[in-house]
Design a protein around this nucleic acid. Sequence first.
DNA 1: CGGGTGTTTGATGTCATTCAACTTACGTGG
DNA 2: CCACGTAAGTTGAATGACATCAAACACCCG
Lengths: 237, 237
Amino acid sequence: MPNRHFFQSIALFSKASESSIVECERLAKDHFYKKGEFLLRSTQEQNVFLYVIRGWVKVAKESGEGEEIIVDVLTQQDYYGEQQVFQTDNIGADLAALQALTDTYIFTLPIPSLKKLTYSDPALSLGFMQHNLAKQAQMAMEIEHLSIQNASQRIGCVILRLAEVKQSHPIALHLPYDKTILATRLGMRPETFSRALAKLCEHCDVEVSGDTIRIYDLNRLVDYVCSHCSKTFPCYK
Amino acid sequence: MPNRHFFQSIALFSKASESSIVECERLAKDHFYKKGEFLLRSTQEQNVFLYVIRGWVKVAKESGEGEEIIVDVLTQQDYYGEQQVFQTDNIGADLAALQALTDTYIFTLPIPSLKKLTYSDPALSLGFMQHNLAKQAQMAMEIEHLSIQNASQRIGCVILRLAEVKQSHPIALHLPYDKTILATRLGMRPETFSRALAKLCEHCDVEVSGDTIRIYDLNRLVDYVCSHCSKTFPCYK
DNA sequence: CGGGTGTTTGATGTCATTCAACTTACGTGG
DNA sequence: CCACGTAAGTTGAATGACATCAAACACCCG
């Protein structure tokens, strides 16, 4: 169960007033979901704000034609429901489905309560503001990448952001969830993903086996991936 | 020169406290730019917040390879610089170039002053919060479109959002700026834009001559464009 | 061991990019 | 007012990238 010190350790809440934190502690409920379980279905009305403590969560909608669109994939320190927290009117509500891609821990706060807190505690709402701007910057990068990077480069970019640069070569990492999901998230078909990843490997001295990836020459990968981007590596996250 | 009543009429500022508005009135400077002029170059440090009163403004960056990336196109009620207003650290600063695509009126506020105001006036920062969330929703839609719509559909979507639905058929409208710019904004080449627009015309009973577009059958256009989108028309903006 | 899901591979089609040529529109200076 | 130059827009043919459909393979879990 999230306690006061836990909330203070979260960047999003760290600057909130003492009383806000006490109130959050009182209202928060934590939950555990096994891989595959739904945290929220697209038919369900959403009345809680969700904060991911550990794990990976898929946020998806459907197009008119029934195709799945992966809007976002949340992981620790990400959250969902800020639209409802700060919205006065309720138009354009999202109706996305949230599903656990791995075993997942979250906590929730009731939206009306959190809404009151943010209205009364400027420091809390400033925290949200900053995190939302960071998310916005990330989305801007995604738009950029979809416009000018090819499939291999987009995959390479994800790999670079998963990599711990400090490690000495080869840098090893694990894909946190299925390639099929990652492919859809990157706006491509699984088949394309598979081929593009293969191309990336021979082109940039990267090795894949299952969900394990080994980078043998970081600079080579950075050169290939980041040349068609306005940011310079490292560009977390 | 923007006066108090002007600020109160702007949704972004309308809920701010009396004293904030007086302060804004004192600090704001308005500017006019002719088509083609730069409001901000990518080499310039940005020390003002910009609010567009009228006109269209291109926000662009460059990739490592020198390609232009049109990050955003601002028009009335849009603004630029909120990152700097709410950011504590200064990492990941953007360095975009802003250029007038038409004759343009804006006003500016010094970032440090606005920063102070938002920290002291919760109502003002909540206004920013709400507008930013709206922008975020729009960006999410863009990402969606880049993943699942083809070139013709993306163009059709822009046209639909420019159309005044109330009009009786044919619905006429003007493209507000060059097709080349619009093409780049939509993540495609001008040649592709030209062909895709032609395809849209014969497919959906739309007519183009120069920058004028006439829609003869709105439903047909909506059917074609919006089937591969999670939103339902009308979905302004 | 069997069945489902996730992943890869191949053959083929569609769509977007590229490069080049050409037309149109527009503004400037003679 | 016309001639010219420049930029925007269009068109064609060739290439490349990604999607699609179908099949095979790998792997995990019961």
